[in-house]
Amino acid sequence: MLSLPRKQSLIGYVLILPALLIMSLLLLYPFFYATWLSFHTKMIGAPAIYVGIKNYLDVLASKDFYIGFLRSITYTFPAVFLKLILGLGLALILNQEFKGRRIMRSLAIIPWVLPVFVVAFIWMWMYDYALGALNIILRSLGLPVVRWLSIDNAMMSLIIVNVWKGFPFFFMGILSGLQSVPQDLLDAASVDGASTIQRFRYVTIPYILPVIYIVSLLSIIWTYGDFTTIWILTRGGPGDASLVLPVLIYQTLYAEFDAGKASALSILTMPFSIFFIYLIVRLLRR
C-alpha cells in the first residue's frame, strides 16, 4: 500500500476534522451526556445529583422494565419476519416483466414514504370498533366485528401497522438485490435442468442474502425503537399489553420528569441494539 507523504496526510486529517467534530457533537455528546445523566437524579428543572448506580438498580428491580423488554421483543421479531416475507414476495413478483410494473413498484412504496404519525392515525381510524373501515367491511360481509385494540389483539394490531409501514423497505432492498443477479447464471442453471425453485434456492438466494441480512438487521433496530405508532394507537395499553421500552422511557421522562432514570433505562435498552449494529458492521466488512 502506498503511504502518503507526511504533509499530505496532515492536510487530510485537517480536512476531515470539521466532519469529525460535527459527528462528535451530534453523536458522542448526547451519548455521553445520557450516560452521565444515568448516574444522577435529574428532575427536570432541578440540578443533577450524583446517585451512582441507583437508577440502574431501580430500573433492574422494576417489573415494568422486563415487561417492556418482553413486549419489545414480541413486537419486533414477528414484525420483522412478516416484513421480510411480504417484501421478498413482492420483490419477486415485481421483478418480473409485465405491463404496469413500474406503476406497481411506485404504489408499493407509498406506505414507506408516509410519515409514521400519519400511518398511525390512518390505522387508528381503520381499527375503530364502531366506525372503522375494517369492522365496517366485516359487518357488511356478515362476519363478527373485532376489537382490534383490545388487550388480546393490541399487539397483533400494532404489528400489522408496523408491517404495513415497513415492508416496502424490504421490498426495495431485495428488489435491488434481485436486479444484481446475473441473468447468465439463471440461464445456465436452466440449461442444466434446474427447476424454478432450485434456481431461486441455489442462485438467487445466495446473491440477495447479504441484502436480506442488512435490511433485516436495520429493521430490527428500527422496530425495536418504534415509539410513535404505539404511542398514538395504544399508549402502551390496554393494561400493559403494548408497553414497549420506548413508551416506558417516554413515560419516565415526561410523566416522572426523571431524566436520570429515563437515561438509565435508555442505556439498558442499548445492548440489544448494539448487538445488531455489531452484526451489521461485520456484514458490511465482508
Partner: peptide, 21 residues
Amino acid sequence: IPPDAVEWDSAGNNKCYMGGR
C-alpha cells in the same frame, strides 16, 4: 358502558356520542 371503551383513545367517547352509540 360500551365493551370497547377500555381501548378508546381520548377521542373515543366523542366518537361514541357523535356516532350515535
